[in-house]
Simulated assay, not measured.
Amino acid sequence: MQYDLINTKDALHEYCAKISEAKVLAVDTEFVRTRTLLPKLGLVQVYDGEHLGLIDTVEINDLSPLNAILADTKVLKVLHSCSEDLEAFRANLGLIPSPIFDTQIAAGLLQIGPSIGYANLIEKLQNVVLDKGESRTDWIARPLSTEQLRYAAADVYYLLPAYHQLSEQIESKGMTEIVLSEVACIGQKKTHTLPPEYAYLNIANAWKLSPKSRLALKLLAEWRLQRAREKDIAINFVLKEQVMVSIAMKLPSHVAQLSAIDGFLPRDIRQHGDHLLQLVSRASQADESECPLKIKRLIDFREYKKALSDLKQLCQEVSKANDIPIEHLASKKQLNQWLKWCWFEIDETEKMKLKPDIISGWRASLFTPKLRTLFNNDTGRYHALRDL
């Protein structure tokens, strides 16, 4: 397995010229995300079947030649389990590559294995056992060892032949558009973020809180997410969720009460205590009419179990009619996402300006007509706050 380490601007231009005629490229990333909110890109691996390049995104400041290739819609990019890679590309290069063929999605459609890992897929398809010993490498530290570079190179060296094996079967089943559309939907989600004022919707046990505690949680969660984004700090390193919920429940009015909250470190109290107390004070003094609506749960809806059962039955019918594995059609989480979108006055998916997965992308034509009939305020079995 031969590869070139590309760590200068000139070398990058030369390498990108070599692969400029390729129609298909295997691509992977290596990044680090420990205390940061966003991933820090260390390498981008690219292979066209002849030239394998390990592009050092730490050493090279101008990555525009790579960006041009990744953004070229005439070049198919092949990745495996691409969700985090897309996040790394968006955070570091400011783009989402397109189009993308994801070999994990393809393997799932072909029933090789649900959410199969790269190493397992390569072992199944090519009878090659990959060394995963460098998976916890610090990809930002320099220099990278030969072992680290070989590990990174293997992630695209075997990916390209895996694509050729899978794509032939996917094409024969007429599922190529499903694979491409699924990744496009994943990419779209990466470009839509939840507005900070709705960050409290994601907090476990928020439904238990009283009106003023809900307002306190809303203000605290909004501040936490804004600070995480401004400083690029993982949100639980800004303020742990369990600490935030405890503050909202107890509504402390002075520092001594903050200090009594389990898990709230003295360092964090010194740094943020005064500001957090101001937020809590705002909530404590607010009129209940200013507080967020009670947070609903699906199990609070009388018709939830029956609706979920009907949706699962619908999935079985669609699966059978279209020869698509049912586990790839819609998970329970995706069905719940649909029900929340239909029934919740304040819905996370809507606030992100997205639609539920089962009425997006390739699934839309399969599900939308049937869902219009089932969830219809006039003649349907279930009500819906939003129109399809």
Rank of each mutant, 00 (worst) to 15 (best):
N127M: 09
K173H: 09
L279D: 02
R136I: 10
D323A: 15
E84Y: 11
I122R: 01
D131C: 10
E30R: 04
H164T: 03
S365L: 11
I261M: 03
I235V: 11
M249V: 05
Y198D: 14
L79G: 04
E123I: 11
L239Y: 02
P195R: 01
V156D: 14
K212D: 03
I19A: 00
I55Q: 10
I140W: 12
G94Q: 11
D347N: 13
N236G: 01
D300L: 06
K296G: 10
D274R: 14
K23I: 04
T368V: 09
A199D: 04
D232F: 07
E182L: 02
H51L: 04
E182I: 07
I6F: 13
K250F: 07
P292Q: 11
A162R: 02
A71W: 05
R90P: 09
E348W: 04
F301S: 06
L276K: 01
T137E: 02
F101I: 15
N377W: 02
D347P: 11
Y163C: 11
G273D: 05
L201S: 07
P39F: 07
K355S: 00
L125W: 10
F301H: 11
S172F: 02
D347H: 08
L160M: 07
R227T: 13
D262M: 03
E350M: 12
L43M: 08
E21H: 08
L180G: 10
P369V: 07
D28W: 01
I96V: 12
K355R: 13
V245L: 15
F344V: 07
R136G: 14
E290F: 12
D131I: 08
L335D: 09
E222F: 13
E14F: 15
Y118G: 10
R297F: 01
N92Y: 08
R297I: 03
K294L: 08
R224L: 11
S281F: 13
P211T: 00
D48F: 07
V58G: 00
A199Y: 05
Y3H: 12
K74I: 05
A17C: 12
L43T: 07
E241V: 12
I235H: 13
I295K: 12
I105E: 00
H51F: 13
Y118P: 06
L298A: 08
D262T: 14
S253F: 06
E288C: 06
I105Q: 02
Q285I: 00
Q188I: 00
D300I: 00
E182W: 07
Q2E: 14
G263Q: 02
L276N: 01
E350A: 13
K355L: 14
A119Y: 11
H328Y: 03
D138Y: 12
F301K: 09
A364S: 13
S167L: 10
A199R: 01
D28E: 08
G42Y: 00
A364E: 15
